[in-house]
Computed example of a mutant assay.
Amino acid sequence: MQLTVPIRRLMATLVDYFIPFILLTITSFIGYNNDIIGMILSFVVMVVIFIYQIILFAKGQTIGKKLLKMQVVKRETQVPLNFFGMLIRETVGKWISGLVFSLGYIWILIDEKNQAWHDKLVDSVVVDLA
């Protein structure tokens, strides 16, 4: 498996934020004249995204990584990172990476395995599937 280049990882992250934003924006426009409908649609969209993300976490992916055919795997074994590993990586790990001027993310550019701090925390790498 080949390591994913940093620009593709950035694109996957942008997709991870862009898709929910667009879906919630659309539901806001649909419910513009009716607050109840807007709130219900927004809630349904958030629940669907949350459930889909849980399913993807179990496969070592996020929405962006799934669409761009990438996967988070354990560095040594190349086995997809499990749900709890992804949960730690995507919450605590990414918080740590962004804590000090986002140095943990920038670290990808100087690390030989393109690992950010959140990857190092759970000993993972991001690989291309295609």
Rank of each mutant, 00 (worst) to 15 (best):
M1F: 11
M1P: 10
L3S: 01
L3G: 04
L3C: 06
T4K: 02
V5N: 13
R8Q: 12
R9Q: 07
M11C: 10
M11Y: 08
T13M: 14
T13H: 11
D16G: 00
D16K: 03
P20E: 03
F21Y: 14
I22N: 02
L24Q: 07
T25Y: 13
S28F: 13
S28H: 11
Y32A: 14
Y32Q: 10
I37M: 11
M39K: 11
L41T: 03
V44P: 04
V45E: 02
M46A: 15
V48E: 05
V48I: 14
V48H: 06
F50K: 00
Y52Q: 08
Y52W: 14
F57T: 08
K59C: 06
K59Y: 08
K59D: 12
Q61C: 07
I63R: 00
I63K: 00
G64R: 02
K65C: 05
K66H: 06
L68N: 05
L68T: 06
L68C: 06
M70D: 06
Q71G: 01
Q71K: 12
V72E: 04
V73M: 01
K74A: 09
V79I: 15
V79Y: 09
V79R: 09
P80F: 03
G85E: 00
R89E: 06
T91W: 08
G93I: 00
G93S: 01
K94L: 11
W95F: 15
G98T: 02
V100W: 11
V100D: 03
F101A: 14
S102I: 10
I106K: 03
I108P: 03
L109F: 13
L109K: 03
L109A: 09
K113V: 12
K113Y: 15
N114A: 14
Q115L: 10
Q115V: 08
Q115A: 09
H118W: 06
H118E: 05
K120R: 12
L121E: 01
V122D: 02
V122F: 02
V122W: 01
D123G: 09
D123A: 10
L129F: 08
L129D: 04
A130E: 13
A130L: 11
